[in-house]
Simulated assay, not measured.
Amino acid sequence: MRKGENFYVLDTMASNFTWASVGEALSRDGVVVLRNLIAAEAVNTVAAAANRILSKPSLLGSVGYYRKGYTKRMYDPLLLGAPTPEIVLENNILDVVTEYVGGECWLAECTLKHDEGSDELYFPMHSDFAAGSTWIQREGNPVISAELMQRRFGVGAMMYLHDTTDGAFCYAIGTHTLGAPHGSSLNRYPQPMRSQIEAATVRIEGCKGDVVLFDDRGFHGPEQPVTVQRTVLIWDFYERKAFKDRTKTPIPVLPTDLGRLNQRQLSWLGIGADGPMIPYDLYHMRGFDKTPHYRTVRRVIELLQRWDMLKVKLRRIRNRLFPRRKPNAAMDYSE
């Protein structure tokens, strides 16, 4: 893996910056970083809201992070409120993605993710797509074809919520044109090809507020194992026709924030789509009930609620058996 490079960074405030260069970098390398695209105030607002959410778990409807295991915490970031939806659906990004894939897209998924720095490899290098793959076996869901893998149809995005080096996003430069011939998992590739992909991998180091765009077909993933924590916004855009006009999964958003978006941004949220490929309740982020600890936590909560109920009943019995005597009314000695 290559580290300490910055050829992938394009400063949107630089005098020689052009939006055409963003598409060129994506086409050539499969990845690009946009610096100074999002105002610092907006980035700081989102980062502060993310820190608050990540400080406590969601229990029985309380607002907080989700978990499937000890390696990471997650949340639906559009529920953080403004300006998160405007960042995820930033108009220049929509233009770049549309030009790159050749058509309008859906916002496929959106996640606030905090990696705990558990010093484990739990999310290895991978391609998001491979011929024959689908996310969930469900009637009407499209299966990725070898022909589709030869064209652009998906762009991933990420925004760092703090300066990030160790544990940063990594991308194998140029692998978006390979077509993932041996599947989406790098571990299944012949050793010579795997070595080439690993040699092409660059750690995409960034500053707080940097936005990473990448072709989902290329091999990518966070640097692991590491002992440092990392917090990012991650989202994805899928070209509509490639998936039969279906979104990947419904994305929750606060209705009061919708008025800040234009008609195109609202459309990209999924309004008018022909249904989701993954139902809201089956999306991986909501999978704590599939873990071994779910029954234990559920049982503990139920016992606590029963204990509260028992205390109320015992208080009522006590009051019936030992009613409190009302104090005598004060006598009036005034003339």
Rank of each mutant, 00 (worst) to 15 (best):
P255G: 03
Y122D: 05
R240S: 07
M13K: 15
Y333G: 01
F288Q: 05
L258D: 06
K241I: 04
P252K: 05
R318F: 03
L314S: 05
R188P: 00
A82N: 12
R286P: 02
S133P: 00
I38Y: 09
L178D: 11
G154W: 02
L321D: 02
T227E: 14
S334N: 15
M331S: 09
S195H: 02
S184G: 06
T247V: 15
K244M: 03
E335V: 10
K72I: 00
H176Q: 15
L303C: 10
P222K: 08
H220E: 04
A172G: 11
L314M: 12
D29E: 13
M158R: 11
L213V: 09
L112Y: 08
S185H: 12
D236V: 03
P252D: 07
I173T: 14
P276E: 10
D245V: 00
V46S: 05
A50H: 11
L254P: 02
M125K: 06
V300R: 08
H176N: 13
A108E: 06
P85Y: 14
T291C: 12
A50G: 10
H162M: 12
R138S: 11
T134I: 07
D76Q: 13
Q150R: 15
N141Y: 00
K326T: 12
E223C: 06
K244F: 05
I173W: 06
D245T: 00
G61M: 06
A168V: 04
L161D: 09
R194Q: 14
V212N: 03
R264C: 08
C105H: 12
Q263G: 15
Y8G: 06
D245K: 01
